[in-house]
Simulated scan of single mutants.
Amino acid sequence: MSVPDAAASVFGDELGRATAYADLLATRGLEWGLMGPREVDRIWDRHVLNSVAVGHAIAPGASVVDVGSGAGLPGIPLALARPDLRVTLLEPLLRRANFLTGVVEELGLGERVEVVRGRAVGPDDKDPLGHHAQYDVVTSRAVAALPRLLAWCVPLMAPTGSIVALKGSSAAGEVSDAAADVARHRLKAEAIPVTTHDGADPTWLVVCTR
């Protein structure tokens, strides 16, 4: 699998680990059922480079939780592109959590990336896997529609925190449709187009703040 030229500018000194991660997605990720066969040729552009887009809305030194991390997207590429961040990969499924733990160990990211087997829940939820910590930024990628995502993510937000969700081109419409839910959580939401590198198609973020 060839490494795109843009990867060097995005990952800099971490290009080697980013390449190793992309290779893990294309091999073990495929074997474990975390990536579909059709995704292998699109791992760099659609998954690894695309995930870095969330970093455009994250301040230096922030603590970040990746909700429903799955194969580590966007959390692992974000951690590689932004070594200043402390990233928690939150994943309820044991198989996926084991995959993430192995990847973090193999890439040597343990000092700034933590894997937690758990799920985002409300503050009064008694789910044994419920995760109740709070973070500067709560991020996600292709997890759920905005109303459900807010219910999961708002309890994880620090008092001055934000939600930064990777969405598709319909992000603005999703924000408009969820206006009542956004207001109920006493948040402000906006859809923001960003590009991860020169020549890339825009990626949309939904950013929610108090």
Rank of each mutant, 00 (worst) to 15 (best):
H185N: 08
P77T: 08
W204H: 15
L100H: 06
R17Y: 03
G29K: 01
A179S: 15
N50H: 15
P193C: 13
I76V: 14
V137M: 06
V206C: 09
A53C: 14
W32K: 13
P74I: 05
L34R: 01
P74E: 03
V137S: 01
D136C: 09
W204K: 05
V121T: 13
T139N: 06
T209Y: 02
P155G: 08
L90A: 03
S63I: 10
V116Y: 02
V87L: 10
S169G: 11
V10Y: 08
I163F: 12
D13Q: 15
G118C: 10
P128F: 02
I192Y: 04
G161P: 07
Y21Q: 01
E105V: 04
R46P: 01
L150C: 01
R117K: 07
I76E: 03
E39A: 09
A133I: 00
R28G: 05
E174I: 09
L150T: 03
A191R: 00
V154D: 10
A200W: 03
D198N: 03
L107N: 12
A179K: 12
A191N: 02
V113R: 03
A151C: 04
C153M: 14
P60W: 04
L149I: 04
E174L: 11
T160M: 11
A200M: 12
P123S: 05
V182I: 15
V54T: 13
A18F: 07
L150Y: 02
V113S: 09
L73I: 11
P92N: 08
M35A: 13
P92K: 02
A189D: 05
A26S: 13
S162C: 14
P37F: 13
L15F: 12
T101G: 13
V143F: 13
C208Q: 12
G16Q: 12
D84A: 06
F11K: 10
A191E: 06
P147C: 07
W152R: 07
A71T: 05
G55P: 08
W204C: 02
L89S: 04
H185S: 10
L129G: 08
R28N: 00
V64Y: 08
I58Q: 03
L94T: 14
D13Y: 00
V138N: 09
P155R: 09
V182L: 09
I43E: 05
D181Y: 00
R184P: 00
E14C: 00
L146R: 02
V164N: 05
D124G: 01
P128A: 04
L149T: 02
R86P: 00
R186Q: 15
S176P: 00
H132Y: 10
A6G: 10
G108E: 03
